Simulated assay, not measured.
Amino acid sequence: MALQRSAVITFMKVRWRILAVRSVLGLVFAVILGWIFFPEASGGRIAVLALLLVFSAYVLEALRAQRK
């Protein structure tokens, strides 16, 4: 039982780390894309773009897993 619990905790730590990396990369690429395509974009527009990038990463991951 302890081994299973440890495996679940490790799995959740990995998932949180993946979310953190995707969030940081989503924000970085949102700033770059906003700077290129929307020079006068506000912080809200950049945040929405970052959320869309992270969301699309999870959607594409789900589609890829479904195809396998």
Rank of each mutant, 00 (worst) to 15 (best):
I32Q: 01
A2H: 14
L63K: 03
E61M: 06
R67Q: 07
L3A: 10
I18G: 09
L53A: 07
L52K: 09
Q4A: 11
V48D: 04
R17W: 14
E40P: 01
V31F: 08
L51P: 00
A30Y: 02
L63T: 04
E40C: 01
W35F: 12
F11N: 13
M12D: 15
V24C: 08
M1P: 03
E40Y: 03
W16Q: 15
L25N: 02
V8A: 15
F55P: 00
T10N: 11
L19Y: 11
R45H: 03
E61A: 12
A62H: 04
R15Q: 15
R45Q: 06
L49K: 00
W16R: 15
R17K: 14
F38M: 14
L19R: 12
V31I: 10
I46T: 01
F11A: 14
A62S: 10
A20E: 10
S6P: 01
Q66A: 15
L27T: 06
I46M: 03
V21S: 08
A47N: 01
A65K: 11
V54Y: 05
V54D: 06
A20C: 10
W16G: 12
Q66P: 00
V21H: 11
V48N: 02
E40S: 10
L3R: 08
V14F: 14
L27G: 00
A41T: 05
A62F: 04
I36L: 09
A30Q: 01
L3V: 09
L52E: 12
W16T: 12
M12W: 13
W16K: 15
P39L: 04
R67S: 04
R45G: 01
W35C: 06
R45Y: 05
L25F: 06
G34S: 04
Q4D: 07
E61N: 06
R5D: 13
A41R: 03
I36S: 02
A7Y: 02
Q66C: 12
V28G: 09
L33S: 13
A57H: 02
V54T: 07
A65R: 11
L19A: 15
A30E: 00
A2D: 13
L33T: 09
M1L: 10
F38N: 09
A65N: 07
L25D: 04
E40G: 05
E61C: 03
F55A: 13
V28I: 12
M12I: 13
I9Q: 12
A2P: 05
V31T: 08
A20M: 09
M12H: 14
